[in-house]
Amino acid sequence: MARNRQPILKKCRALGIEPMILGVNKTSKRGFRPNANKKPTEYAVQLREKQKARFIYNVMENQFRKLYEEATRKDGVTGLVLVEFLERRLENVVYRLGFAKTRRQARQIVSHGHIAVNRRRVNIASYRVKVGDVISVIENSKNIEIIKEAIEGATVPAWLELDRAAFAGKVLQNPTKEDLDFDLDEALIVEFYSR
């Protein structure tokens, strides 16, 4: 399995995003230094937006392209369907429910088998949840300090419902672009792939 091991702060600076979006409470000592004399090309702007989405959701290129191709086959606006697919990934839902402080931590919690979907253990980070699914921490993992700390300060988006006492959450509806916790121009991603 391919893994992204790039330094978070370095990549955030290159893409022009705040590390807090990723749940990282650090800042780089180096300032963002755009090349003042160069205006980015249309291609560069589209590429940066795609790389930003890939980096935030921790998805490798092949998987991201497959998600885009699946989104083009679905009815509706391709960019919005792509955003919905990315938000419905199990690792992202675990992060948005507050079981983890970062998406990378959520991915590790899922892959180590601490999460159950509809009372069945799932250890695939890219598993796509559906409306009505109940995502919960398995019984033996409720005492893990990382999960207990993360769930205390959790703020949950409108498309999810959290039961803190039971360490469980439910998907109430499909997410929309308004539910994102960062700015993303999905139209640029669609333009990039449809060249």
Rank of each mutant, 00 (worst) to 15 (best):
Q51D: 10
R30V: 01
Y95G: 05
V129K: 11
V24F: 13
V94Q: 10
L90M: 00
R88A: 09
R104P: 08
F192S: 08
S136E: 15
M1C: 02
F85Y: 14
K29Q: 13
G132Y: 03
S141M: 01
K29G: 15
A158Y: 04
E69K: 15
A187G: 13
L180C: 07
V94W: 01
E152T: 13
Y95I: 02
I144H: 10
T155R: 15
L86P: 08
N118A: 07
A36G: 11
D179G: 07
P40Y: 05
G76V: 01
F192C: 06
I21L: 03
T102K: 12
K177R: 14
I56W: 13
E87H: 04
R13P: 03
R5P: 00
T78M: 02
K66M: 07
A168Q: 14
A71N: 08
K101R: 15
I135A: 10
N25H: 12
K130N: 15
Y68G: 05
Q173F: 06
T41V: 03
N118E: 00
V93Q: 06
L86C: 07
Y68V: 10
K74T: 10
T41Y: 05
Q173S: 15
N58I: 03
E145D: 13
L97Y: 10
E61Y: 03
V59W: 11
G98Y: 06
L67R: 14
R54S: 09
A106Y: 03
R119I: 00
G113M: 00
L188V: 03
D133H: 10
T176I: 02
I115D: 12
I8F: 12
V156E: 00
R104H: 06
P19L: 00
Q105P: 00
N58Q: 13
E178K: 15
V134S: 09
R195M: 08
G153A: 05
V110W: 00
S111M: 03
K39I: 09
A36W: 07
V93H: 05
A44N: 14
V94G: 06
